[in-house]
């Protein structure tokens, strides 16, 4: 079967990379927290799924992708978008349903897509991104353009037929796809133990003849290192890899979900997994950054988020009568 893919010891990142990763995670966190408030205040409507606590996975994975690479995303997709370099102003405008938004107000939270950044869209259909990824994988291989697709999906989605069909097809055709399972232990109101009899989704890779590895998905350096190796391996034409990131869903399934089904003690203690706090602490201990540098970064992020919210709020409402546009391409 040619080269084997093995997970190596994770590497520590240097200062510049560390600050960039921290900033991206902070952007996702503040974006989501702000959104939660806007939703509670009914400024943002519809179905909103937050990724608070899960910032390390999209950040660490997308750090190894260029603007030309592709991602497919999920209903919980804001982190993927921001991770891939999405403009938070355009994202916020979309959530406000404005013309300036990524989808001109048509798509909203569950459908944010950005052509220029290779973001093939968040998705309201669980498991749909998995099969779309085989298509961007196919085109990249056919066009011989070296592009990789990172396909994000949840533990719950790995029970869809689409997961199994996509994994098999990608493997048989050696498609350049990094399947990224964000295993947050929950699918809506169902704990993982109730919906699958495996603990590690990565073990499913065996059945499709592709490498499968699991990392601590709240440890940004673990995600970052594993992805570096995986993407390099995939770019060499070795075929797909399944990377599972173990993480935690801090919030309800959707914004406003009171979560009666969750263990309150577990929820109380959930912040101990915080990928941002953990990384920050290590970086300061290692003297890679100072506390003051982190503070400065927080302030910077805070102001960018503030600007994005204002941008979204001040956006132009689409003309409601313009609903025929974009149903078909010109």
């Amino acid at each position: 079967m040619g080269t084997k893919f093995k997970l190596k010891q994770k590497k520590q990142v240097g200062k510049d990379a560390a600050l960039a990763l921290l900033k991206r995670m902070l952007l996702i966190r503040r974006f989501e927290e702000t959104l939660a408030r806007l939703f509670a205040d009914s400024e943002v409507k519809g179905f909103v799924h937050l990724s608070i606590g899960q910032e390390a996975c999209p950040t660490g994975v997308c750090a190894h992708l260029t603007n030309d690479d592709y991602i497919t995303s999920t209903h919980r997709g804001h982190g993927h978008l921001i991770g891939k370099g999405g403009d938070i102003k355009l994202a916020m405008a979309e959530l406000f349903g404005k013309t300036e938004g990524y989808c001109k107000g048509r798509g909203g939270s569950m459908h944010v897509a950005a052509f220029d950044l290779g973001i093939l869209g968040a998705n309201g259909i669980v498991g749909a991104g998995l099969v779309l990824a085989t298509g961007s994988g196919f085109s990249a291989k056919y066009q011989n353009n070296d592009r990789v697709t990172a396909c994000f999906f949840g533990d719950g989605a790995s029970n869809q037929g689409t997961f199994h069909e996509a994994a098999n097809l990608a493997s048989v055709w050696k498609l350049p796809i990094l399947f990224v399972c964000e295993n947050n232990g929950w699918a809506e109101f169902s704990p993982q133990s109730s919906h699958q009899k495996i603990e590690k989704v990565s073990t499913r890779a065996v059945g499709y003849g592709m490498p499968g590895v699991t990392v601590d998905g709240d440890d940004i350096e673990a995600v970052y290192s594993a992805t570096a190796d995986a993407v390099a391996w995939i770019r060499k034409g070795n075929g797909p890899i399944l990377l599972e990131c173990l993480t935690h869903r801090w919030e309800g399934h959707y914004a406003g979900d009171p979560q009666p089904y969750r263990d309150q003690d577990e929820l109380q203690a959930i912040t101990q997994h915080c990928p941002i706090e953990r990384f920050k602490k290590q970086l300061i201990e290692r003297k890679t950054i100072t506390a003051a540098e982190f503070e400065a970064l927080s302030v910077e992020v805070e102001s960018e988020i503030g600007e994005a919210v204002e941008f979204g709020r001040q956006g132009t409402d689409p003309n409601p009568q313009d609903f025929m546009s974009y149903i078909y391409a010109d």
Partner: peptide
């Protein structure tokens, strides 16, 4: 509904 999809923007959604 005319031959269109439902928009996220609620005014546009209600227009359809």
């Amino acid at each position: 509904t005319p031959h269109v999809n439902y928009a996220y923007n609620q005014e546009m959604e209600w227009a359809t």
